[in-house]
Every structure is written in C-alpha cells, then in structure tokens.
Nucleic acid binder design. Structure first.
Length: 596
RNA sequence: CGGGGCGUGGCGCAGCUUGGUAGCGCGGUGGUUUUGGGUACCAUAGGUCGCAGGUUCGAAUCCUGUCGCCCCGACCA
C-alpha cells in the first residue's frame, strides 16, 4: 500500500477525550475515531490489526477442532427470560441494550451468547455420539457499560471472540477447558503480548472454575495479586490469602460498656484501647434480587478486615439461588422510607434481632446472616450491643446466638501471606483482562432444557464451557504494553504493516526508483509493506512511521545512488546501513523468524 | 446514580468576570523557501460560539431549560 492512498491522518494534538497512552496513540495515529460515548469506528489500519488478531485466533481455535459460526446480535427477550437473565441484564444497572420492535416485542442486543447457542445446540445435538463440540464466533457485542472509558478498553460496542463447548460429562468439559487454556496462551504469545493467567470470579455468567488472562499494564482496570513464587495468581475479586492472627483479647468477663460517639472501629479503638482484630464489625446491606426481592443482609467480619463485595454477592446468590441485581449499604433514609425504626448504626452486633424488620413494607422480614472466616474462631471479642452508644466486651458466639453461616468474604491484600505457602507474599500488579475461560456446568443447559441422549438412552443436560477473548480490547492492550515516547511499537504479528519504505526525498529520481523497486520486491515476497511515497519532508515521514508503529523501516535516502539503504527496527531503534539486496534478505529473514 | 468539569472552524485552546457583531496554535489549500527528524515565510479557505427559550437597542458573554461529552466515586456504620 502506498501511503499517498492510505488516508493517513495523524494528529499532533491529542484529542481531549483520551486519558491513557494507548488511547491517545490510537487517536493520534488515526486508528480509531469516537462516534459517541463508548462507540468507536475502526479506521483502515485498525481494521488490518483486528484482522491479523482474528486470523491468529481462528488458526489456534481451529487447531483445537473448534467450529466457527456467526450468531445473531438481536435476541428475543423470551429466550433470556427462559435462562432467567433478562431482568438482571436489563434492570437496574443492567448492561443489555434493549428495545421493542413494531409488534411491541421485546428484544435485546447481545452482550454474550450463551442463551442462543445453548438453544441451538439443544435443538441440533441429539446424541452423546455427536459430543463434544466447541462452537465459536468473532463479532460485535454490545454492553451498555455504566461508564465507558479508555477507548476500546471499556467500550459499549466491541469485537469479541466467544466460544461455547458442549460435553456429556464434567471430565470431558475439563479436558476442553484445559485445551482452551493452552490455545489462549498460544494466541496471546503469537500476538506478542505478555499475559498472566489468574483465578477469577465468574461474575454474572455464572459457573464454577474460571480463569482470566491479563495483559499486565499500569493502566489496567483490575488489580491482580501474584505470589512471589508465581504459583498463585488471582484477580483481587477472587483472591484468598492467610489472615493475620488476632491480638488475644483480655476480656474474659462478658459485660456491656458505654461507648458514646464511638461509632467507627477507629473511634472505638482510640478511645477504649481495643485492637481492631478483637472487634466484630457488622455491616448491614440490602441486596436487590431477581423478581424484585429486597433482602436485608447482616455481615460479620473482623474489625481489621475489609469486605469483598464480589465474594459477598456470589455467596448470596449461591445461598438463595437467586441472581443479585444490586447490593448496597442500608442508609437511615432508606429505613425511614421503608417505615422502619432507625438501626443502632455503629453498635450493631451479629445477633441484631429480626424484629427490627417486622414493619418493613417491601423488604424481607428476616436478615440473611453471614460471618467471615476471620470471626469464626474469635474469642472474648468486642461487638456492638444493638443499642446506640453501647458495646459488649468479652463476648463469645454461644452468648450471642451462635455463629452465622460461615463464608469467605474478606478482601485479600498485597503483602499478605499465601495459602499455598506461608513464606510466599502476595504482590500487586494491574492488568487488562483480554481473555476469560469458564467451566459453566449445566446452568444454561438446564434452564433452557438443552439435552442429549446418553449411552443409557436417558435425556441429560449438556455440560458446558465458555471462552472469550476481547479482540478489540486486545488490540489496544497491545499498544498499552508496546509504546515509547515516539509512538506505538506494534508486535510484528499484529502490526497493520510489517515494514514501511520511507523515501527521504521522493523527487530524487534515484531514491524514487530504488524505493519503487524495493516495494515491488517486498510485495512479491508477500511481505505486508507500506510505501511512503508522499511529497513530504523526511522528518514528517519519520515521525509518522514512528507514531503508527510499523515494526521495520527501510530508509531510501542519500546513499541510494550506490544502492545503499538503512534498515531500522522500531522496537530496538537499531539502524544498519546495507546494500538494498542485503537489507531485503535480512528483513525477510527477521520477519519469518518472528512469525514462526 | 452521586460529585466535579467542559461544549467556540478537522484537533488543541483563548475570549465570558465587566454584553458592542469571534481570535490564536496545529492541521488544510496555493506559493516561495527548505530538503534525513513534524522547516520558515506569505497568501487563502473554513465557525448556526451544542441546542431552545428569555433579558437587552445589541448575547459566545447575563438568566432559564435542555442535550452531549469527559473525569472522580459508587466498599467497610
């Protein structure tokens, strides 16, 4: 391609919308243009990048025997109601764009395709003999994000590869899950990305085991924790660690003390000389569940620990077998609206009586109670007295009605010791999620009644897995991980072009002729080559070539009379002066080496 | 959803406090110059000042409403 035909428009000023490096560079290089909040146009060079990523993904998926399909983007609401996800995905802060057609039928723009594919699989796969299958597609998805940001990192319309596998049993699912893990590692390596695989929360998709692939980058939206020996890594939403031992409490007598204006752990400790690890902190929250159920929640956790809201949400979901649509701390205002008396905030204990809820208009009338693992072993602890400005000391679980349901809802933090080896410490780093693989189990096949006939002749629901890669996000993540002060440094395998021939002065007959000759030869060798034939000053062309990040550059300049050119490598900034023929040979050798 | 900020040629911004008919840099076009790191100079085109009302002789500027965009937060009583 000739740059004069490329519609290349680079910017010197960064549009004000951009915050992070990759977003700025993609805009400045003319790769993307914003159309509205969270919605972008992929310009010609960007599309080339996306195509190259797509090709790598297809090759690796096909190598594992996966089958490519293309599923609809508009889904009937009924299908999503059948799986029970319609409400959760559309109500409240739901992310599914939805609309009505002229028949007043409800439809949604697909944020993901479990429903559709499960339905189809159920209709087309009849026998265990047809299993397993793994179907995938690469196409645009829609999510009405609460807050789109960082260009393609969190956009509302984006390109995703999603795959869904169907199995006759769990062990077969695990085999494919492992294969996908392998395929994903190959894909990311081939794309020139450094990724780390972490244990992850399954989120709204549901299911059991799940693993995320993160591109490590400062600008990442997720915090990940990695053990010093590298054997354990997890998203903070999911991470576990060893917690410190509590300071032994000296209160062996149970009594109530007055604690005026000591409404926070901090205040209480300062005034009473308690240690936070001796105190049971109680958090009152309201969970909005599917079908509009409003469930008050009472969570007990050690005073020096933080609550992990994702873990809590999942626990609630699991215990009630209902989707949690929203969850937030209960406020005084909400209590008034609900027609309830004020709770003794700051002095609430795990045994707060349900009678506080008996006049509730729309809330459930009993608290769902949980205790974090950090409080279960606690002895002679401090907790509220369920009465304003009063606390109890020297308490034990048998004195306050027993230990509530024990679960892990504590946030793991960097610096803490690991579960697998207490000598290992968790370190923090940030990451961009580019891939996620799940073992879904039978959740969707059961709800959508997608079954096959097993060897014994019985109908059984499929075991399912699902596997996603954010293709457009991956492209931006590659930029975030590969750039310098001059611009993008595309990994060769996904670069829009592999090499750019920069003719310093296109009006010099020798230079132009040599440039054209090299261009022809490279095209003949099937190298993806860009020929900068513009009537611009050399400096302009160098700046542009750096900015758009083409991995290799052949500079045809003053020495072209003697057939000498320069071979420049973008990622190392190395420059070699060579005979044109030699430069071509070397370049082709290097390119083939990197591609293999 | 809460808080903050911004909408003025393609991009980045000034002008608004104190109303008087719109300006700068980049980019575009033509020319001269320069010719391997965004050359300099000259000329030139391009704007419903987000939109709608209002105040006023007169509104980018003041008032009201509205739309859009960006940032921070949405988690511990």
């Amino acid at each position: 391609m000739r740059v004069s035909n490329l519609m290349l428009t680079t910017l010197r000023n960064v549009p004000a919308e951009a915050e992070i490096t990759s977003h700025k560079l993609l805009l400045r290089g003319g790769f993307i243009r914003r159309v509205t909040s969270g919605i972008y146009a992929y310009m010609p060079m960007m599309w080339k990048v996306l195509e190259k990523i797509t090709k790598i993904v297809q090759e690796e998926m096909n190598a594992k025997g996966c089958l490519q399909t293309l599923l609809p983007q508009i889904h009937p609401a009924d299908l999503w109601k059948e799986s029970g996800r319609w409400e959760g995905y559309t109500a409240g802060e739901g992310i599914m764009f939805n609309l009505k057609d002229r028949q007043e039928k409800e439809l949604g723009l697909a944020p993901t395709h479990e429903e559709v594919i499960t339905k189809i699989a159920g209709e087309s796969i009849n026998s265990y003999k047809q299993l397993p299958v793994n179907l995938y597609q690469i196409q645009t998805k829609f999510r009405d994000e609460i807050r789109p940001r960082f260009g393609l990192m969190r956009s509302r319309e984006f390109i995703m590869k999603d795959a869904y596998s169907f199995h006759q049993n769990k062990s077969d699912l695990k085999l494919t899950y492992k294969e996908m893990d392998d395929a994903y590692r190959k894909i990311f390596r081939r794309c020139g990305l450094e990724t780390v695989a972490v244990d992850a929360d399954s989120g709204a998709i549901g299911g059991s085991a799940s693993q995320e692939f993160m591109v490590t980058a400062e600008a990442g939206e997720d915090m990940i924790l990695i053990s010093s020996d590298g054997l354990y890594s997890a998203n903070q939403e999911k991470a576990v660690s060893r917690y410190s031992d509590p300071i032994i409490s000296g209160f062996n007598k149970a009594e109530v003390i007055t604690t005026p204006n000591q409404n926070s752990i901090e205040e209480l400790c300062r005034t009473q000389s308690f240690d936070p690890s001796q105190i049971i902190k109680v958090i009152v929250m309201l969970a909005i569940l599917e079908e509009g159920i409003k469930q008050p929640i009472l969570v007990s956790i050690r005073g020096d620990q933080e609550l992990n809201i994702v873990k809590l949400t999942n626990s609630i979901s699991k215990h009630l077998d209902k989707l949690v649509i929203d969850i937030f701390p209960i406020t005084e205002e909400q209590l008034s609206i609900e027609g309830l008396d004020q709770l003794p905030f700051g002095s609430i204990a795990p045994d707060l009586e349900n009678t506080f809820l008996s006049n509730a208009k729309s809330w459930e009338k009993e608290f769902l109670r949980f205790a974090d693992l950090t409080v279960s072993e606690l002895k002679n602890f401090v907790c509220g007295a369920n009465k304003k400005d009063h606390h109890r000391i020297g308490m034990n679980w048998d004195l306050i009605g027993g230990l509530p349901k024990e679960i892990d809802i504590r946030k793991a933090n960097p610096g803490e010791r690991c579960i697998h080896d207490e000598k290992q410490i968790l370190n923090e780093c940030r990451g961009i999620e580019v891939g996620h693989i799940f073992q879904l189990g039978c959740k969707y096949s059961k709800s959508l009644n997608a079954t096959f006939t097993n060897q014994e002749g019985n109908q059984e629901p499929f075991w399912m897995g699902c596997y996603g890669i954010g293709v457009s996000r991956l492209a931006q993540a590659a930029v975030e991980q590969n750039n310098d002060e001059n611009g993008i440094i595309w990994p060769l395998t996904i670069a829009p072009y592999e090499v750019i021939i920069t003719v310093a002065n296109i009006e010099d007959i020798n230079q132009k002729a040599l440039g054209e000759k090299l261009y022809k030869q490279l095209k003949k060798e099937k190298v993806d080559v860009l020929f900068d034939d513009r009537k611009e000053r050399a400096g302009v062309k160098f700046k542009d070539a750096d900015l758009i990040g083409i991995p290799w550059r052949i500079v045809v300049g003053r020495d072209s009379v003697s057939e000498e050119v320069e071979l420049f490598e973008r990622c190392t900034n190395s420059i070699k002066s060579l005979k044109a023929e030699k430069a071509l040979q070397e370049l082709i050798k290097e390119i083939n080496l990197k591609k293999s």
